[in-house]
């Protein structure tokens, strides 16, 4: 049961490719792989722990003020993540800039609390949060992999495409500038959704 709760959001109910949530940050932080990885990790932690905490509160919080309580919990967690990043990974925190703070507005988090954590026991709620965070992170990493490889010729900052291939050095290759621009992230997400859907149809 717990295994299914954890694995479903990775593929079958992926928050980005199936529910189409959290697209904005997927466009913004996927130019390079490193910020995408950090972002994925941060969101996973926040979804997991906010699910856990709200699930613990589920019988005590009055229904009418639950949104406010959720916001407080999520905002607190995001601030913790932000402070940790600033303390231990300052460069990445700089690159992510406002998008760490904007995790609060990531629809996946509130969506999972409302849809799952408020009606389930703490452990499943935690697994669900982690699973959704990882499902989101997986898409982020796939998108950023292609964007960094084709747009900058590097992966995680290491050069993959040799310098001698470039036109400036007498080669034939050139980085694809469109990959750096936001539209391409949308197109890659679209292609991933396409592949997911096609796979679903074949397995029928």
């Amino acid at each position: 049961m717990n295994k299914r709760i954890f694995l479903d959001p990775l593929f079958k109910n992926n928050p980005v490719s199936v529910l189409v949530l959290g697209i904005c940050s997927a466009l913004a932080v996927t130019v390079k792989m490193e910020p995408a990885l950090v972002m994925a990790l941060s969101v996973t932690l926040v979804t997991g722990f906010s699910g856990l905490i709200m699930s613990l509160f589920r019988n005590t919080v009055p229904n009418r003020i639950r949104i406010i309580v959720q916001l407080i919990v999520v905002a607190t967690l995001v601030i913790v993540v932000d402070q940790i990043l600033k303390a231990f990974a300052y460069d990445v925190s700089k690159q992510l800039s406002v998008f760490v703070g904007l995790i609060i507005t990531n629809c996946i988090i509130m969506g999972r609390i409302e849809a799952f954590a408020l009606g389930n026991k703490p452990l499943p709620a935690f697994m669900d949060g982690i699973g959704n965070g990882l499902g989101y992170g997986m898409i982020l990493v796939i998108v950023s992999f292609f964007r960094e490889l084709l747009g900058s010729g590097t992966l995680l900052g290491y050069r993959i495409v040799p310098q001698s291939w470039y036109m400036g050095n007498g080669g034939f290759y050139e980085n694809n500038g469109l990959m750096i621009l936001p539209p391409m992230a949308l197109i890659i997400v679209g292609l991933i959704i396409w592949i997911f859907n096609a796979r679903k149809e074949w397995s029928k």
Binding site: E174, N176, G177, L178, M179, L181
Partner: peptide, 10 residues
């Protein structure tokens, strides 16, 4: 348009 945004120098 694809070439224009991808490889502007060309």
């Amino acid at each position: 348009a694809f070439l224009f945004f991808s490889y502007p120098s060309h």
